[in-house]
């Protein structure tokens, strides 16, 4: 439809012009002036006893944003399972028939070896990254996203059945709900304790220690749980699409 391409190009050009005209008024690149970031940099590590100001912003100063974002992930995963699962019977699916007469390539030993080896490294690295957001530039999201890679590796290296046994669906759903729900519950609990939602009420410890920064590592752990469970559930649902349903048994 050439008319659409032409109209689209014209509209995009106009929008580009408008954006650039507006961006011309931005502070010059590399000269962030604003008070918000500077203030946080100055006070965060002292007030929250942690070196990573970004985690402080994520889980403490702007914790409500992260709570909302967690539930966005939650809602999206719920939507995906709903859309992809709808009429799936809970029988054991079989692999898809070969496409156009070409049988699927089997899994070679090399693939299995590297996948299994990779799983160990992935888990170690993911846990390392995710477990101390207050001390290093890592955090729950990053670590959990890497950890969820183990799901993909298992699928590639060991096949769908092994994947399914390691990460069964209901367990994922429950963990995901626990992760998201506990974040909200922590907020409610702090509301009850101190009158403000998501206040950092746990002991702050010393800067640089593992047990420091109060609720931040705790919230981070639940965020990591939710992201891990959510992504694994996602991979599971998409991996299921490579299977085809067996005919339903009579009377089932």
């Amino acid at each position: 439809m050439n008319a659409r391409a032409v109209l689209g190009a014209v509209a995009c050009a106009l929008l580009l012009g408008m954006l650039v005209w507006g961006f011309a008024g931005l502070p010059p690149y590399g000269h962030y002036p604003g008070p918000y970031g500077t203030l946080i940099n100055t006070v965060a590590s002292h007030e929250r006893q942690l070196p990573n100001a970004i985690s402080a912003v994520n889980f403490d100063y702007r914790g409500a944003d992260t709570l909302g974002e967690e539930f966005i992930l939650f809602a999206a995963v719920a939507g995906i399972t709903m859309v992809l699962r709808n009429d799936r019977k809970r029988t054991t699916p079989e692999p898809l028939p070969p496409t156009r007469g070409r049988p699927p390539a089997g899994r070679t030993e090399a693939v299995r070896l590297f996948s299994v080896a990779g799983v160990g490294v992935t888990i170690a690295f993911g846990v390392y990254l995710g477990i101390h957001p207050h001390l290093t530039p890592g955090g729950g999201f990053q670590g959990a996203a890497i950890l969820a890679g183990f799901a993909a590796l298992t699928f590639v290296g060991l096949g769908y059945d092994a994947f399914q046994r390691i990460a069964p669906q209901t367990r994922n759903e429950v963990f995901e709900a626990i992760g998201a729900g506990t974040y909200a519950v922590i907020g409610l609990a702090t509301l009850a304790i101190s009158g403000a939602f998501l206040t950092n009420v746990l002991p702050l410890g010393g800067n640089g220690q593992f047990f420091s920064a109060g609720t931040i590592p705790l919230i981070n752990a639940f965020v990591a749980l939710e992201v891990l469970a959510g992504f694994t559930l996602l991979f599971l649902e998409f991996a299921r699409e490579t299977r085809v349903e067996k005919e339903e048994e009579a009377g089932e």
């Binding site: 962030y32 604003g34 918000y36 970031g37 500077t38 946080i40 940099n41 965060a44 100001a53 970004i54 402080a56 912003v57 994520n58 702007r62 944003d65």
Partner: peptide
């Protein structure tokens, strides 16, 4: 240091 808020 750069702005932590935008990174969050």
């Amino acid at each position: 240091a750069t702005d932590p808020v935008v990174q969050a």
